Simulated scan of single mutants.
Amino acid sequence: MRTVVYPSDSFGCGSFRAIWPGQHLAAAGHDVEVVGPTDRRVRVVMDGHTVKDVLVDADIVVLQRVTHAYMAQAVGVMRAMGITVIVDVDDDLSSIHPSNPAWAVHRPGAGLHSWHNLALACRNASLVTVSTPALLDVYARHGRGHVLPNYLPDMYYGIERIDSDVVGWPGSFHSHPNDPEVVGGAVARLVDEGAEFVMRGDPAGAGRAFGLAQDPPGGGVSVAEWPAAVAALGVGMAPLADTRFNAAKSWLKPLEMSACGVPWVASPRVEYRRLHELGAGVLADRPRTWYRELKRLRESAALRAELSEAGRAVAEGLRLRDHAWRWWEAWQRAVEIDRATPRPQPVGV
């Protein structure tokens, strides 16, 4: 069956959840085509603001983060036409922090994009694939949900790492506006003691959030350069506030550090705990614990080496090339769901 995959973007989300899995499946001989964001081939036929028809050459269509009002309608229309439609979601968009720029884009009433549209698309979909079990309760209460954890492509593995005591956060502050608060004054205290603190991502505003005199060094990094940038950290950190949004976050950030051999300290959110229980990293639930664990790693090259080796061992079992079949399995489940039920009428159009 002809399967066409439409990633939401060519950055992290689109790559991990659609582009790379689709490429692996195509290389394995499946009839899968990945269509980039700038080469869309789905055309909708409109009657005012209502989608009446969809022109697309596929038996199975895979879409990501369907937040546009017309595409949310198109999901139901395609399914009524007999096309199997899978919608992939990697975050709970309905609980984005208001300080995150994505909130203004996706809040209902702001324009044609909203998290209400995503909810509609998921209700109309043959199957909803998600990165964490928590997202099933948000987007797949109808029972047509499937968890596909995030895995890593080969470019994350085998990178030579030069050990150091540099502490770093591989993240951008604008997309994590309230997460630094969980570390309290730990980072500022370490910097006062002589530690070097850096970021991999946009650091604007992070200095104030961590209690520093200025923003730490950092900047944007491309998808291709990201693994090497992460591997250059001596001690990694992954702070996440205890929020509804973060309760559904995947283990991707600490997994990336593990594969790159970076020892890390992270908040005890559900998926971070899951990765830690496999043998990677250290968890910190309060500022004094963050300070203690980061300080221990800064002061002990032996401990850094131990956690680096342990993290690499865990990440070795989480290569995308060994798990890409899970995407095909999920997509075939969607086909079976449609075969077992009458063609539904679109919901909420």
Rank of each mutant, 00 (worst) to 15 (best):
Val4Cys: 05
Val4Tyr: 07
Val4Ala: 01
Val5Glu: 00
Val5Asp: 00
Tyr6Lys: 11
Pro7Trp: 03
Pro7Val: 11
Asp9Gln: 08
Asp9Gly: 11
Arg17Thr: 06
Ile19Val: 11
Gly22Asn: 09
His24Arg: 08
Ala26Arg: 14
Ala26Leu: 05
Ala27Ser: 13
Ala28Cys: 06
Ala28Ser: 14
His30Phe: 12
Pro37Gln: 01
Pro37Gly: 07
Pro37Leu: 10
Arg40Trp: 06
Val51Asn: 02
Val51Leu: 01
Leu55Glu: 14
Ile60Glu: 13
Val66Trp: 04
Thr67Trp: 04
His68Glu: 12
Ala72Val: 08
Gly76Ser: 00
Val77Gly: 04
Val77Leu: 03
Arg79Thr: 04
Ala80His: 09
Asp88Pro: 07
Asp91Val: 03
Leu93Trp: 15
Ser95Arg: 13
Ile96His: 01
Ile96Tyr: 06
His97Gly: 03
Pro98Trp: 03
Asn100Pro: 09
Ala104Gly: 11
His106Phe: 15
Arg107Gln: 14
Ala110Arg: 10
Leu118Glu: 07
Ala119Leu: 14
Cys122Asp: 04
Ala125Cys: 11
Val128Glu: 07
Leu136Lys: 04
Tyr139Gln: 06
Arg141Ile: 05
His142Asp: 15
Val147Asn: 04
Pro153Asn: 02
Met155Ala: 09
Met155Asn: 15
Tyr156Phe: 15
Ile162His: 15
Ser164Cys: 13
Ser164Gly: 14
Gly168Asp: 00
Gly168Arg: 08
Pro170Ile: 03
Pro170Gly: 10
Ser172Arg: 08
Val182Asn: 08
Gly185Cys: 00
Arg189Ala: 14
Glu193Lys: 01
Gly194Asn: 08
Glu196Tyr: 00
Arg208Tyr: 00
Gly218Thr: 06
Val221Ile: 12
Val223Lys: 10
Pro227Lys: 07
Gly234Val: 07
Met237Phe: 03
Arg244Ile: 06
Phe245Trp: 12
Ala248Gly: 15
Lys249Phe: 02
Ser250Met: 03
Lys253Thr: 14
Leu255Val: 11
Arg269Leu: 12
Glu271Cys: 01
Asp285Gln: 13
Tyr291Thr: 00
Leu294Gly: 03
Leu297Tyr: 05
Glu309Ile: 07
Ala310Met: 06
Arg312Asn: 01
Val314Glu: 00
Val314Arg: 02
Val314Tyr: 02
Ala315Tyr: 09
Gly317Asn: 00
Arg319Gly: 11
Arg321Thr: 14
Asp322Arg: 10
Asp322Pro: 09
His323Ile: 03
Ala324Cys: 14
Trp328Asn: 04
Val335Lys: 13
Val335Glu: 15
Glu336Gly: 09
Arg339Met: 10
Thr341Glu: 15
Pro342Met: 06
Arg343Gln: 10
